[in-house]
Amino acid sequence: MNEIIEKIRAEFLQDSKAIKSLKDLEPFRVKFLGRKGLISSAFDRMGELPKEERPLFGKALNELKKELEAQYQELLNRFKRAEEKGHRLDLTLPGRKPFAGGRHPLLKVADEIKDIFRGLGFSIEDGPEIENDFYNFEALNIPKTHPARDMQDTLYITDDILLRTHTSPVQIRVMKRQKPPIQMIAPGRVYRRDTPDASHSPFFHQVEGLVVDEGITFADLKGVIQAFAHRMFGKDVKVRFRPSFFPFTEPSAEYDFSCVFCGGKGCRVCKNTGWMEISGAGMVHPNVFKAAGVDPEKYTGYAFGMGIDRIAMIKYAIDDIRIFFENDVRFLNQF
C-alpha cells in the first residue's frame, strides 16, 4: 500500500528533473494528475484492496494528490517566469503557408451559371467539341449556301468534320435521344476562325439552353432569362429583348442586360447605350424539330445561348479575353 504511494512519488520526482521547458510540462501533468493519470488509476484500483484497508489508502492517496498538485503548480510558475524572461515567440513573423489553389475564374462563373439553372430545374448536358456538319449546321437549319454560315467562320478538320461553332449541336443530340419534356443547359467550348485580340479569341465558351414541351411560349423564354439576370447580377438588372435572326429559331431575339457598371445611365463600357449585349435566343424553328425527330405540331420550345467569357468579363470588369487563357498565377490568385 505504501509502496504504491512511494513509487508514484519517486517517479514524479524523477520525471520532474527531466522537464526543460513549459511545453514538457503538460504531458508530465497528464501522466500523474490527468483523468487517466497514475493517481486516478490508483484510486480505480482501490477495489482490489481488502475492505478494511481502503479508507486509509484513500486518505494517503488524497494527501499525495494535494502534494503533487502543489509541486506541479510551483514548477508551472517557475517555467512560466523563465519563458517570460527568455525566448519568446515573435508572433509578428509570417506563418508557414500551405499551397492553396482555387478555381479558374471562367469556370467559377460557369459553376455559378450552372448552379442558377440547376436551381431553375435544368439538367446539365455535354457534347463533343469536334462535330460533324449535320449537327453543327444542317440540323440547325443552316444549309450549305446559307448566308448565316458566313456569320460563323468555321475551323475544319475535313470537309464534313469541324470544330463546333456554337453549343447548339448539343440541342440536336439531346432531342434525338430523349423525348420531351426537355429542360437542359449545355456549357462548353466553341471555336471560330477569329484572330485573337482583346475581345476575340478563336475559342471561347457558351452555355446553350433548350426547353421543349407542350405549351412552351416566348413568354417562358422571357421569364427564364429575366430570372437568370436577376440571380446573376442582382434584382436591379433589366432585360431587353430585340428581334434578330438565327436560322434555328423563329421568332429570334437578341437579349441585352442593363449595364451593371452605370446602372443603365450610359458609360464607356456600354458605349453610352446603357445596355450590354449578352446573346441570342428564340423559339425553336420547326425545321430543327424535324431534323431532331420532334413533332413540331405537338411541341413548342425555346433555346438560348450565352457567352461564359462575356459574363465573366462583365462580372470581374476584365477588358481582355486573352488573360483567361494565359493562366498567369498573379491573375488566377485574384479569384
Binding site: 439538367s123 419534356p181 429542360q183 422571357k222 421569364g223 430570372a227 429583348f241 430585340r242
Partner: peptide, 26 residues
C-alpha cells in the same frame, strides 16, 4: 409570329415568372 412580335415590340410581350417543371428531369 415574329413579324407580329416585332411590330408589337418584344418588350411589350408577356413574360412568365414561373414555370411548370417535371420533378424528374434526368
Amino acid at each position: 409570329a415574329e413579324e407580329v412580335a416585332r411590330l408589337t415590340g418584344y418588350s411589350n410581350l408577356p413574360a412568365h415568372d414561373r414555370a411548370t417543371i417535371p420533378y424528374d428531369m434526368p
